[in-house]
Computed example of a mutant assay.
Amino acid sequence: MTKQLSIYVYGAEQLCASCVNLPSSKETYEWLQAAIERKYPEQPFKIEYIDIFNPPEDEAKKEFANRVIEEDLFYPLVLIEDKIVGEGNPRLKTIFSEMEKYGYHSAS
């Protein structure tokens, strides 16, 4: 059985300055969730959206949200486990490639 991956999408209501013509962070989160469910049906994963300006109480998530702000990282920022796999305009190919390192297999 494949280990359940934790995928985090860090973002904000407002678009980052370099991402003006791109979807919002929340839209990217929803799109990514649907794409992963289609690609890896019945394979466990947890995906969570985290607002960088209003993060949850979890200390690690708060710290990373603060890092996104302080280091001017592009968002939405996609994190799988502890690895950044996408910034600004995340690429499915990169995200899928990282998931496959953990044993995920494409349905098609």
Score class of each variant (00 low, 15 high):
residue 34 A to Y: 10
residue 41 P to Y: 02
residue 35 A to F: 11
residue 55 P to N: 05
residue 58 D to Y: 14
residue 57 E to T: 09
residue 23 P to V: 05
residue 30 E to R: 10
residue 34 A to P: 07
residue 27 E to F: 03
residue 58 D to T: 11
residue 32 L to S: 01
residue 49 Y to V: 03
residue 23 P to C: 08
residue 52 I to G: 00
residue 54 N to Q: 11
residue 36 I to P: 00
residue 28 T to V: 10
residue 47 I to M: 10
residue 61 K to E: 03
residue 41 P to A: 06
residue 45 F to C: 05
residue 37 E to R: 04
residue 42 E to S: 14
residue 42 E to M: 11
residue 48 E to W: 06
residue 23 P to H: 07
residue 28 T to A: 06
residue 30 E to I: 10
residue 35 A to I: 12
residue 41 P to L: 02
residue 39 K to Y: 06
residue 54 N to C: 07
residue 32 L to H: 02
residue 58 D to F: 14
residue 36 I to T: 04
residue 28 T to Y: 03
residue 41 P to C: 05
residue 62 K to F: 08
residue 60 A to P: 00
residue 32 L to V: 09
residue 39 K to M: 13
residue 32 L to G: 00
residue 34 A to F: 05
residue 62 K to W: 09
residue 39 K to G: 12
residue 49 Y to R: 01
residue 57 E to V: 07
residue 61 K to N: 06
residue 54 N to I: 05
residue 58 D to I: 11
residue 44 P to I: 08
residue 58 D to H: 14
residue 35 A to R: 11
residue 47 I to L: 12
residue 37 E to V: 09
residue 50 I to W: 02
residue 54 N to S: 12
residue 54 N to A: 14
residue 46 K to D: 15
residue 49 Y to K: 01
residue 40 Y to L: 11
residue 59 E to R: 04
residue 49 Y to F: 08
residue 45 F to T: 08
residue 55 P to G: 03
